[in-house]
Amino acid sequence: MTTAPYLIVIGGSAGGLHPILTLLPGLVASLPAAILIVLHRQSHYESVLTDLLSAKSALPVKEASEKEPLLPATIYIAPADYHLLIETDHTFSLDDSEKVNFSRPSIDVTFTSAALAYGSRMTALLLSGANTDGTEGLIDVHDAGGTTAVQDPATADSDYMPRQAILHAPVDIILQPSEMAAFINRMAEV
């Protein structure tokens, strides 16, 4: 096993941007983990999203490129219109195959792929959304020994996605947006 950094994968859909903007300022700049954000959105707002998240974060924010190795203390964004996969050598791969749960990037695809590559060395965090993406991926993350976390549906703009996850997947912890940064800082230190 290589000494790849811990991995945090955050998946969000409708209403998912708000908790991300809330948690980013609280992350420590020396975070010993890579953070990967999969957010459903229109492909047109590509560069705007990177700029928006950069402004809120002490960590560098960039779009994930294929073959790029995952580095600690870096925030990667899944590009619009591609599924984002992770290889077992801890580099990114892109895939433009069919949408999954009407979405590309799909949160399930990235969660499952990360689970296969990182096993227990990762946490998946599922945020607000109006579809069922993410639930199956959370099951795979759990089965591979990783940690699963979901936004408290009561705090979500669209509570359907986190509710589905809590109903059907083994969820280790339910978090308010205000608790997420501290949680991530803590998981990365383990």
Partner: peptide
């Protein structure tokens, strides 16, 4: 081929 995508398919 890059393994992650082919594994998935």
């Amino acid at each position: 081929y890059a393994p992650a995508s082919i594994n998935r398919r």
